[in-house]
Design a binder for these strands. Structure first.
Ligand SMILES: [Zn+2]
Length: 331
DNA sequence: TATGCCGGGAG
DNA sequence: CTCCCGGCATA
């Protein structure tokens, strides 16, 4: 009566479906599990949702006031083109780097078109900004290896890449056979950084700060980006969100203390931190084993439900909608 | 209390 | 398959 479990609210909506007497809906299944209209399949739909969701999330994080008024505005397909052109029209002035190149690299080839090729097909635009370092005006660019312990410096892009590949990554692109992961290894990029050296300024800036990861997939090996929302691979949407969040220039006025689900981009040089090894080994972290070890230990990140709220359920990831393990914010 | 999600049921 | 919910373990 007074304390509705917050879910009933939606439950009513589902049954009563008041706000919209859909014409072609004569069946009034009052007490049966009824299916959602669900427009159609979720192909681009889902992608758009993700896009919209992210956008919405951004808005939500920026404007603490007026909890409503967002979806109504940018949910319909009308915003599809808009929702995806945002990353180009971001109000950010200093858009130069410090983020996934694929975000700023593509200008018109927007992935959300037909085939969607983002960074798996990443062009070799690595050594570009350094090309005209030859000018020799005041600054010079050198490439420094960022392998833990190694600080080798080279003066040209190919050199450092060769160094990284030969000295650290191995002669070939044959890393540990983890699972998936395809050709397309330009991993070397992740292990060196270009440093601008003026006349006598040793430590100028570090660019690829959080790019230093252990030998892992450098991109999505997923060719079929249709249901990357379901099977819950170790890394997928979260990564996307992460990157998105990391690249988002939004200053987030301190008014809202909302924190992104992943606290993206803060790890300086996380060398080895992949926690997706098998937790099944000596000294299991589970000391109490409640009864069913199969039950997911529910991470601490906010899932779609909490992030978007019971209303706006349409923005949840598919799994969340179905009360299954969330995939978008797979923590 | 609310949230996350497993297991299971309806189409 | 997709979609949904009861109910439980959690926080
Ligand atoms: Zn989710």
């Amino acid at each position: 009566m007074a304390a509705i479990p917050t879910e009933n609210k939606r439950l009513f909506r589902g049954v009563a479906c008041c706000i919209d007497p859909s014409t072609r809906d004569t069946s009034f299944a009052n007490t049966s599990r009824k299916r959602r209209p669900s427009s159609s399949q979720e192909d681009k739909e889902d992608l758009m949702d993700e896009c919209t969701a992210a956008l919405v999330l951004m808005h939500l994080s920026c404007s603490p006031h007026s909890p409503n008024g967002w979806v109504e505005q940018l949910s319909p397909a009308a915003s599809l083109s808009d929702a995806c052109s945002w990353r180009s029209g971001t109000p950010s002035p200093p858009l130069s780097e410090s983020g996934p190149s694929w975000l700023s690299a593509s200008d018109e080839g927007i992935g959300l078109d037909d085939d969607f090729d983002e960074l798996p097909k990443k062009k070799k635009a690595v050594c570009t900004s350094s090309s005209y370092s030859n000018d020799d005006t005041t600054t010079r660019v050198v490439y420094q290896c960022r392998w833990p312990g190694c600080h080798v410096m080279k003066s040209t892009c190919p050199s450092i890449e060769a160094h990284v590949r030969n000295a650290h990554l191995g002669p070939r692109n044959e890393r540990e056979g983890d699972e998936d992961m395809e050709g397309d290894d330009h991993e070397e990029e992740f292990y060196y950084t270009e440093v601008e050296v003026g006349f006598t300024s040793p430590p100028p800036t570090l660019s690829h700060r959080d790019m230093a990861r252990p030998p892992h997939e450098g991109s999505y090996p997923e060719p079929t980006l249709s249901h990357r929302d379901m099977a819950r691979p170790p890394h997928e949407d979260p990564e996307y969100q992460r990157a998105l969040a990391a690249a988002t220039p939004v200053s987030i006025p301190k008014t809202a203390s909302f924190s992104w689900p992943v606290s993206a981009a803060v790890s300086p040089v996380s060398i080895r931190k992949s926690g997706k090894q098998m937790k099944l080994s000596v000294s299991a972290p589970n000391a109490k084993v409640p009864g069913s070890p199969s039950r997911r230990a529910r991470g601490d990140t906010k899932k779609c439900r909490k992030v978007y709220g019971m209303e706006h359920r349409e923005l949840w990831c598919t799994q969340c909608k179905w009360k299954k393990a969330c995939t978008r914010f797979g923590d």
